[in-house]
Design a protein around this nucleic acid. Structure first.
Lengths: 183, 183
DNA sequence: ATTTTCATGTAATCTGTTACATGATTAC
DNA sequence: GTAATCATGTAACAGATTACATGAAAAT
């Protein structure tokens, strides 16, 4: 099964939902860490249904097609519980880091502006996460502890990114100041 | 142009290379932040050549085909210099965070083991980056400053990840201790 | 009246992974 | 002699993005 399948099962542990609702749930807070759009979600839900990991309840919908509400099954819960403790796959693909690697190929003053923006954006994101965190409990027994744990990772990451971007921006600013007009 | 194209141009700012060599250069240190395999790289080099961003020099190769050495052109440098200061795209897709979000659906003792491993792996990675950093200069004027900057981001990220994973592991350990046998 | 929300799907395209395929040279 | 390294490609498949397509109900 694909990671998206597990992501949908994870969302369905919070309660039954339609494909439309899952598309929205993919945004807050899980969308900060995993994104998918409806054109990916609908076919994946069909696959999960065929595999017996979810069950569908159909009703008359607002549009031309039936509204389908999905519920996670025992088989779905078991599949999720087996996948979770396995070492997470990590495919490094960070455009921020890639641009840093190539930073010498661009104008340092312009790159300083970029990293000042990156630092500010990261702090703003951290603040958003912080606000969301305030509504949750730091208790592994609470059903929303997963949201809490994921948000804490987000805050940690964004703060680290902001600190790094500030450092790089100041280095580039200083260098640009020392070398402008002279080259 | 795709991000992979810019990644290859970035590598070529460090000097001419064959597709084979670029495949290896994609590993240390850039591969910590951006990965690609040769089956992606060869067609992309053909596209870059057609676009005029790189130039090819052909020689007799060890195998049945000619060995091709690629050099970045002025057009390639310009394309790279224009791309770099633009806000980096960020597609959140973190399996670690996704698993944290669903942590309540698995056995807490097993998940504690997972996050202890994640914490240890992250520290090990940070140590590798640290060693690579030792050979580089903290000076924007130095041609390898990009490597330095990227590695510092890697160290920052891995340390943050490790701290977070340790926190989560201890929370889960404590919870598992309080609740084992009782459920 | 127009826009947003709810609701579901398909098609085309792009990107990325895994596997297949060839063959010389060098190291063990 | 066997394995690793150097070197380049293609094909099949999987995963993700953008665009196309429909239509009711509610809000502005």
């Amino acid at each position: 099964m694909s990671t998206l399948g597990y992501a949908l099962l994870s969302l369905l542990t919070r309660g039954p939902a339609t494909g439309y609702e899952l598309t929205r749930r993919m945004k807050r807070p899980i969308g900060h860490f995993w994104v998918a759009n409806h054109s990916q979600i609908y076919p994946e839900l069909a696959r999960l249904t065929e595999a017996g990991h979810v069950e569908v309840h159909e009703e008359a919908g607002p549009g031309p097609r039936a509204k389908k509400t999905y519920t996670i099954t025992g088989s779905g819960r078991r599949a999720l519980a087996e996948w979770l403790p396995q070492p997470p796959a990590f495919t490094p693909r960070s455009e921020v880091a890639l641009k840093a690697y190539a930073v010498g190929a661009a104008d340092p003053a312009r790159m300083a502006v970029l990293y000042e923006e990156v630092a500010a954006d990261a702090l703003a994101k951290a603040a958003v996460f912080e606000r969301e965190l305030g509504e949750l409990e730091d208790d592994p027994g609470h059903p929303n502890f997963g949201n809490y744990a994921a948000l804490r990772l987000g805050i940690e990451s964004q703060r680290g990114l902001s600190a790094w971007a500030s450092w790089l921006a100041s280095r580039l600013r200083k260098y640009a100041g020392e070398h402008d007009g002279a080259d």
